[in-house]
Amino acid sequence: MKSIKGKTVLITGASSGIGKAFAFEAAKQGANLILTARSIQKLQDIASQIMRRFGNTVHLFIADLSKKDAPADLYRQISEKGLKTDLLINNAGIGKWTNFLDESSASYEEMLELNINSLVKLTQLVIPGMLERGTGGVINIASTGALQPCPYVAVYCASKSFVLSFSEALYGEYYHRGITVTAVCPGNTATGFQAIAGADTKGMAADTPEYVAKKGLEAFLKGKSFKITGTVNYLQSFLPRLLPRKSVINVVSGMMKKRVEGVRKYGLEVSVNNR
């Protein structure tokens, strides 16, 4: 796919952050949108802005993709409206910065259902139609945390490692059949959760959601299997290849421990939540 002009793009977790930025960037490039999240009010506000600025068609569907049956139900609703998905952007996800034992098993189950299972289910549902049309694709939002073990963010980063590996594997299966699957790996992104949580991120470079969305779509349209956004993030991605794994674990542990200490200091929780 060389352009998304006139195509229909389905974006999950579209009510804020990177998902919202993808909605505006896709609309700017001439795509019609299917947006889904849990908040109808936020989606309606975004849809109104997009239709006013760009004139694109925007369809809204409310879904909590941390529920096991939600992906199938969402796909059924979209199909009943006679809509097809040319590009799926699996953005919805949640993460927690904390000691592993400080979160409940229910919290981790919700995280894995949203970050992994719903992503796999939606991808499996949309690819057959793309194969019939001979074109299409999927952008899966992973993370630079997918590139190495991350103490204090263990489950979240492990889930993003799955997303990266899964995406690249599907790229290998379907690229020569006209389907591109691209994993986008953002680093620290200025979505606002750090400030609210009182996390210690001083001195850390932060990209904007708009930058991540723009570079993610560029990589997809160039047929890339993955994209690490930001020059600093790209350079840092070489560390796991250059240093012994134990050294990498120690470095990341020191970085993430500061965030956990910030949480304790302010009595708050650091989380990423793009639903």
Rank of each mutant, 00 (worst) to 15 (best):
S159C: 00
V184T: 03
L235F: 13
A206Q: 08
R76P: 07
S165W: 01
N32L: 10
E110D: 15
N90M: 01
F24M: 09
C150I: 13
F238P: 00
K84P: 11
T12N: 08
I46T: 06
L112S: 14
S237A: 09
Q124D: 12
G145Y: 00
S271G: 14
V126D: 08
S159T: 15
K160P: 10
G145N: 13
V252S: 11
G216E: 04
T12L: 02
K96I: 15
E261K: 12
L239V: 00
C185R: 08
V120N: 07
E103D: 11
G134A: 09
S107Y: 12
R241W: 06
G172R: 13
V232P: 04
Y171M: 13
S271Y: 00
K81R: 14
L87S: 02
R52T: 11
S167I: 07
G216W: 01
I94K: 02
D69L: 14
A219Y: 09
A190P: 08
P244I: 00
C150M: 07
P186T: 04
L164R: 00
P209M: 02
L112W: 05
Y152D: 03
L221S: 10
V251Q: 13
K28A: 04
A213C: 02
K96H: 13
F100C: 01
I18M: 06
V126P: 06
G137F: 04
A190V: 03
Q29N: 11
K121C: 05
Y152F: 10
M111Q: 13
V212I: 07
T57L: 09
G19I: 00
M111R: 01
T8G: 13
L268N: 05
G6S: 00
F238M: 01
P244W: 05
L112Y: 01
V153E: 03
K215E: 12
A63E: 11
V138E: 03
P240K: 04
Q77V: 06
I11C: 02
S79D: 03
V212D: 10
N250R: 15
L122V: 03
K160G: 03
G230C: 11
G137W: 02
A195K: 12
E210I: 02
M51P: 01
A169G: 15
M204W: 06
K222P: 01
A197D: 02
A146W: 00
R53E: 14
K215Q: 10
E168Y: 10
T201W: 04
V58D: 00
G267P: 01
N99R: 12
L114H: 15
A26F: 07
V155W: 01
L122N: 06
A14G: 03
C157M: 01
V120E: 07
G187T: 04
K214G: 09
E132Q: 11
N115D: 03
D207H: 12
K2C: 05
I228G: 05
A72D: 12
L65K: 10
V270P: 09
G198N: 00
G178R: 11
G192L: 12
K67A: 11
L101H: 15
G254A: 15
K7D: 07
